[in-house]
Amino acid sequence: MKVLILCTGNSCRSQMAHGFLQSFDHTIEVYSGGTEPAAQVNAKAVEMMKEVRIDISSHVPTHVNTYLDQEWDYVITVCGGANENCPTFSGKVGKRLHIGFDDPSHATGTPEFIDSEFRRVRDEIRKSFARFYITEIRKEALPQCSCGGNC
């Protein structure tokens, strides 16, 4: 199972989603990329993921072009910009989904408010990707009924 998660900068939301999905099942090949990748992963995203015991500090933003000729079971966009500007993949893509989130890196205000926005988005990502994992990936891993669905 190969999953690619895309956003514009590949520095925050896609990296958190990457971390969560990989933590749910280490057998899934999870990658993330950006249409306009940042120079590094957002330090606040790294900090907030450490709070839930997931280390994304070694992740590196990668341009989506790196992945265009590969085969993917899922390509998932997590921001409107990447969804609107998602390039055409020359490799086979099983399913393309959009699971959008606010960008916490745009939050302004007190440090406490900014932290709360990162936590809110982080927790929304965890919930949404847990649902995706259970309804899509785990469903595909279950053995199919031999009665044709009439049991």
Rank of each mutant, 00 (worst) to 15 (best):
G91L: 14
I56G: 10
I114W: 12
L68K: 12
G80R: 08
S128H: 10
K95S: 09
S105H: 06
D69Q: 12
K95C: 02
E136D: 11
C86K: 11
E51D: 15
H63W: 00
E136F: 04
C79E: 02
M48N: 15
K92T: 12
F101K: 07
H98P: 00
C79K: 04
A39M: 04
M48T: 15
A43L: 13
S128T: 00
R96G: 03
A107L: 04
A45N: 07
A107V: 02
T135S: 14
H63T: 01
S58D: 14
F129G: 00
Q70I: 01
A141C: 08
A45C: 07
V64S: 01
L97P: 04
K44D: 14
G80F: 00
T66H: 09
H98L: 02
D69K: 13
V75F: 11
P111V: 06
N85Q: 06
E140A: 15
K127I: 00
P87K: 00
D102R: 04
G81P: 00
R126E: 08
E71G: 13
K95D: 06
S58K: 12
V41S: 02
F89H: 08
G80E: 10
H98K: 09
D123H: 09
S116W: 14
S58G: 03
T135V: 06
P104L: 04
P143D: 07
F132G: 07
P61Y: 05
T66D: 03
V46W: 12
P87W: 03
R53S: 15
E84A: 13
E47T: 09
T108E: 09
N42V: 04
V46D: 07
R120D: 05
K139H: 15
H98Q: 13
S146T: 10
G80A: 11
I56T: 07
V41Q: 03
P87I: 07
V64A: 12
F118Q: 13
L97G: 02
E47H: 13
A43E: 15
R120A: 06
D73W: 06
E117Q: 15
R122P: 05
L142W: 09
I125M: 01
V75A: 11
H98N: 14
D55P: 09
A107Q: 05
A107D: 05
K139R: 15
S90N: 10
D69V: 03
T110S: 15
A107N: 04
I134G: 00
K95Q: 13
K92H: 13
S116D: 14
A141W: 11
R120Q: 08
I54A: 09
D115H: 15
V64Q: 00
E136W: 06
T108F: 03
S90P: 10
H106W: 07
K139C: 11
V41C: 02
P111N: 14
E47N: 11
Y74F: 15
A45R: 08
D69G: 14
R131V: 12
I99F: 02
I99P: 03
E51V: 10
L142F: 14
T108H: 07
S90Y: 08
C86R: 09
H106D: 13
